[in-house]
């Protein structure tokens, strides 16, 4: 692992406008509100948080599949957000994305072989004559049969389609993969197969992952560092082991306590958070988590002043009252 970050994101903001002025229904969704982080080469950084906390938006804006509202993202020394689309195309090759449901992104009328070959052709990765053998090698690398190249997506199970999505992403020899909930829709046995595959590929190819997930146990198995998001803000960041053994932010503590644990008998002291997260169209003034927070010292300050990330031990925490002591 090198110390120079492969990707460095600063103050990323993404607001969506929806509705129309005419109908008077115009509203702004504050999806991502100033997120900064960096990822080293060969590292896996996990983004976790509830539905709507802005995880996918972060992943997609970094790849400029969506335009950011503001901020910067340096990748291999260049600012992705400053770059004209033509120059971006070349860099795309180095950055790929795997989706939760690869079925919706695979063209149902294209054979699996042509889907995987597409990137090879566009970016002229190998001479034309070698495309077929490269496709076969890629399918084997992700645990499929070379004969599968002739088949169509509907002939495959969810886990196999996820493998096809991975083969397609790997074809262009990326350095960096955004994995957006790649195992969430899969059965546990298939989920474990895909997690092992992603770990092996990282070992063999030195890949760097931004791994979006909502399952902390999955994150524990794949990510070196973890960022917890809530309503478009980072509330805690640290090494995965530290975050899961000594969570500092009350939201991280609640998230961890809600994990269904096949070994835990300690159901009694589960933290059950009240209510739902506020709407990202009406973000509260103070701490975004204040409405559901159970911290004994929660007070007026939490409702009026937004806590910024500060260093606590070896983690970064955005909470006025988090301490280094055990919760």
């Amino acid at each position: 692992m090198s110390t120079e970050p492969l990707l460095e994101v600063q103050d990323l903001v993404k607001h969506y406008q929806s509705g129309g002025w005419l109908s008077g229904t115009r509203q702004t969704t504050y999806a991502v509100n100033g997120v900064s982080f960096s990822i080293n080469a060969g590292e896996t950084l996990a983004l976790v948080g509830e539905s709507g906390s802005g995880k996918t938006t972060v992943g997609r804006t970094i790849l400029r599949l969506q335009e950011p509202t503001s901020g910067s993202a340096r990748f291999l020394g260049t600012d992705l957000f400053d770059m004209p689309r033509s120059a971006l195309r070349k860099l795309r090759r180095r950055m790929q994305i795997i989706f939760q449901d690869p079925y919706s992104t695979l063209d149902p009328r294209m054979t699996v072989g042509s889907s995987v070959a597409e990137g090879l052709e566009i970016h002229r990765i190998v001479p034309r004559a070698d495309i077929t053998s490269r496709v076969h090698a890629l399918l084997e690398e992700v645990g499929l049969d070379p004969d599968d190249a002739k088949k169509y997506p509907h002939e495959f199970s969810g886990g196999q389609r996820q493998r096809i999505g991975i083969a397609r992403a790997l074809a262009v020899e990326p350095h960096f993969l955004v994995c957006d909930e790649p195992v969430s829709a899969l059965d546990v046995s298939v989920q474990a197969q895909i997690l092992n595959l992603l770990l092996d590929l990282q070992r063999d190819r030195g890949l760097t992952y931004l791994f979006i997930a909502h399952d902390l146990a999955v994150v524990r198995h794949i990510a070196h560092r973890t960022i917890v998001m809530y309503l478009g803000y980072i509330v805690e960041e640290g090494t995965t082991d530290l975050l899961l053994t000594t969570p500092r932010h009350p939201y991280t503590q609640a998230l961890l306590s809600a994990v269904p644990d096949s070994e835990a008998a300690q159901v009694a002291d589960r933290i059950i958070l009240p209510g739902d997260p506020p709407s990202p169209s009406a973000i509260p003034h103070g701490c975004p988590f204040a409405s559901r927070c159970f911290h004994p010292e929660k007070d007026q300050r939490c409702r009026s002043e937004r806590p910024v990330l500060r260093t606590l031990g070896q983690s970064q925490v955005a909470c006025h009252y988090a301490t280094e002591e055990e919760a």
Binding site: V188, S189, A192, D215, A217, V218, L244, D261, S262, E263
Partner: peptide, 10 residues
């Protein structure tokens, strides 16, 4: 096999 497939949190 189901148990062995589930990532553990502890």
């Amino acid at each position: 096999g189901l148990f062995a497939s589930i990532p553990k949190i502890t």
